[in-house]
Design a binder for these strands. Structure first.
Lengths: 239, 239
DNA sequence: CGTCACTTTGAAAGCTTTCAATAGGAGTGG
DNA sequence: CCACTCCTATTGAAAGCTTTCAAAGTGACG
């Protein structure tokens, strides 16, 4: 057994002065901003996972492919999202810019150091990854047991929520093919469902990529959600 | 600035004697074993997430439900699996024993303490959760873009791998309904695919719940996998 | 103003589901 | 030990939803 002094110095020396407690996103403030043009990839499925990215602007599609070209989009990442947190040695998916994107990058090593130095970061990291898993399981439920109508309705509501609380004006920066690959459908089915929704007055397109939700309640019912229905007061402000 | 001695003692006092570095599963050695009979639930979807479980024996189905009763099984947990790692305040799914199950339980608080006290646990936890996310995304690909045949073939191979490297004798402790809800199909479709596989000599049932894989290569092709095909040597030992 | 890529719509085909009936197995009780 | 019951599994036939194939429409861009 060492004496207390030795133990003390053994701890003091290898430990850097404890970093100021911050947020997960705060870690990226030390990084410079990188830009990726539409269509460019931040990384590819199967690549050695080196970096972790904070999206500052723009939107990315994250997808996995089968050898014959079939593709599933596992998610869209947007401003404020961190991608790469839950990867082991290799990236699980390809990350491709939908439109021009600005990101900040830190290394996995840097994240590990910060996690070791700042205990307050630990629950934040765990929560972030748990949310990611939660979304993945929502998607499993959607793909495994929901109809085309439910999937599209669900997607529109998610995009609306992302645009802001009670927001009914939505911008869809992705193509119909992206939506189809995200929802496990074909382009044509997505088109048909959207057309029917418009014909039935649930939504109204203004161009191909912008629409407004005319009947949120009906859309929620179609999606099989109770969320919006349970909080009419919150929506009343905006509608 | 404090002098080194004060700094040292300030660290020594609030920090409990550093715990011996161990494994994630090692944390459960302090817990007593609990038993759950077939059909019993460890916890329900939406419950406040209190505990984390290490499966010691038996198998569980983890599932989420829609309000109208449609169900998706997000996974089967078996001996050695830890469930509940990536949950925030509420459980994401219900965990139900397929057959009698023995588990050990620790609290979320305990996990948090251990993570803080034992830096070596941090990467283990991250890896465990990353694996869970990886499996979820595999399932998204399967549900979003694979045919019934591919899904069932994939499932059988997964069960075979779980039984052991190169194992061709499989036990399926779950019902056909469980398989269907896991694969996003109906009971009837699962039956039909299994029957056809048997008729074609890919598999041979011995009772309802046991089968052997007669033509692993063909099954891999059907599943659209390259895994087994790429490592014929590894299989040769066992076959 | 033409080209090209993406979107929309229609019609037919196909895979999976739904509906229905039969079969198989495990457990129970006479 | 066998009949009986119940639940799960299997199989068949028809229906349905989504896909596939095809063609026309739309819009951005040079």
């Amino acid at each position: 057994m060492r004496n207390p002094y030795q133990q003390a110095s053994a701890q003091v020396v290898p430990f850097p002065a404890r970093e100021p407690e911050g947020s997960l996103t705060g870690l990226f403030s030390e990084a410079t901003t990188e830009s990726f043009a539409a269509g460019q990839s931040l990384f590819w499925e199967g690549d050695a996972a080196a970096g972790i990215f904070l999206i500052g602007q723009g939107m990315l599609r994250l997808y996995r492919s089968l050898s014959d070209g079939r593709r599933v989009i596992t998610g869209f990442a947007t401003k404020g999202d961190i991608i790469g947190l839950a990867f082991r040695s290799r990236y699980l998916c390809t990350a491709e810019a939908l439109a021009d994107v600005r990101v900040r990058r830190i290394s996995r090593r840097r994240l590990g150091e910060a996690i070791d130095a700042q205990p307050g970061l630990r629950p934040q990291l765990l929560d972030a990854i748990s949310d990611e898993l939660s979304r993945a399981q929502d998607q499993i439920l959607l793909l495994g047991r929901q109809t085309a109508e439910e999937r599209v309705a669900s997607f529109l509501l998610t995009m609306a929520e992302q645009a802001g609380p009670g927001q009914v004006l939505i911008n869809l920066p992705m193509t119909r093919l992206d939506m189809a690959d995200y929802l496990g459908l074909t382009i044509e089915t997505v088109c048909r469902v959207l057309s029917r929704m418009q014909r039935d007055g649930l939504i109204a397109f203004r161009g191909r990529y912008d629409l407004s939700i005319c009947r949120p309640r009906a859309l929620c019912e179609m999606a099989g959600r109770q969320d919006w229905l349970e909080a009419p007061a919150a929506r009343a402000r905006v509608n």
